[in-house]
Amino acid sequence: MRRYKGLTIFSVIVFSFLIIPLVIIVVTAFGTEKTIAFPIKGFTFSWFQVALSSKSFKNAFFLSFKVAMIATLMALLIGIPAAYALSRYSLKGKKLLKSFFLSPTIVPGIVVGYSLFLFIVIKLKMPVFEGLLLGHFLVVLPYVIRVVGGALEQFDFSIEEVAWSLGCNKWLAFFKIVLPNISSGIISSFLLAFINSFNNIPVSMFLTGPGIVTLPNTLMSYVEYNYDPTVSAISVMLMLATIIIMFIVEKTLGISALAK
């Protein structure tokens, strides 16, 4: 292959720009000093211990996991049938309906969180947790609509029709024939939705309460007031989880499943 020297150098610089800041975090997580230092003077795992024994981080992790899981499952439950209806049938105002379902993407996350806070928590006096769940649900729903919708575009609906002709009723055909054939789309939308909910901050900014602070928000306020390697250690653990997910995805669906 013919080489483009200038292009290669340029790309190496760009990739260094992407990777080096994260590498620095990884290194600082193992430093012995009380504040973050780079390069490090000594090597220790103690910051991981500090991070893992912190009750507020642990609670925040479980809350984030719970919220991301419930919000994602809700989005799948509501998004899959909607995506199916939008690609299977020729409906009046289909384009409008589709943009309606994607509309959470045009409302800034901080605004979604703020309006839910005012409406649900202040006006309706509902618990913060419900508001938080709804906010995350709204944010991840478009992922499901887009990715599952994309998978359905590829699906040959005559396969479903044949199933009907073979004595399968519409409900059963949806579960036995349609769902298995868009399963990779469902899995990637699940992962994308989960990761994005788990990482989301702006929606949760207003929707906090006693015992209800998500992990990224806890991490953020910690970063604002502290400058020790605990944050680096937590960052390393989060990155490790991401790498594991990416590895599994690469082995099963192909890494591009996460690039939507």
Partner: peptide, 18 residues
């Protein structure tokens, strides 16, 4: 309804269950 007719159908795309 279709699923109670017991008619065999073959489509142009064959529509095999992948």
């Amino acid at each position: 309804p279709v699923h109670k007719r017991n008619f065999g159908i073959v489509f142009q795309s064959y529509a095999l269950f992948p």
